[in-house]
């Protein structure tokens, strides 16, 4: 049911772990639903120089966390802010329909971390405010 890429990232997760003194940390999901994702970011000069994750969840939750961290390392924070769950799912050669919420969770975890960073550094403006507004709640209906 999973693509080879999903299985690869599940079996050999990239960037699993914690960043000490991370510049931003985002946690989404809840144990009740069976998935929690926490993303740690190291940001220098507006660029994500390192990203790590810790995830409690199913195979695709772990794989999307791993893929999301791969996709954002080396990118500017403005680029990272544009990360979509669809892009994460596509990079994994697709996810089963009932697992798309895992990719949404990855997107939201990244955005939750960035929100903390943008807030701390006074970077929230009228252009990006709406992006953060979407990260408030994680739900399972996302496509």
């Amino acid at each position: 049911m999973y693509s080879e890429k999903v299985m690869d990232h599940f079996m050999h997760p990239r960037n699993m772990g914690e960043i000490e003194n991370a510049d931003a940390v985002g946690t989404v999901g809840n144990a009740k639903c069976g998935d929690i994702m926490r993303i740690f970011l190291k940001i220098e000069n507006g660029i994500v120089v390192d990203a790590k994750f810790k995830t409690f969840g199913c195979g695709s939750a772990i794989a999307t966390s791993s893929m999301a961290t791969e996709m954002i390392i080396g990118r500017t924070i403005d680029e990272v802010l544009q990360l979509s769950n669809k892009a994460v799912a596509e990079a994994l050669d697709g996810l089963p329909p009932q697992k798309m919420h895992c990719s949404l969770l990855a997107e939201q975890a990244v955005k939750a971390a960035l929100k903390e960073y943008y807030e701390k550094n006074g970077l929230i403006n009228d252009e990006n405010r709406h992006i953060f507004a979407e990260t408030e709640d994680h739900d399972h209906d996302g496509e």
Partner: peptide, 8 residues
């Protein structure tokens, strides 16, 4: 468990 934020 090593991967799990709940365990942390």
């Amino acid at each position: 468990r090593e991967m799990s934020p709940l365990y942390d």
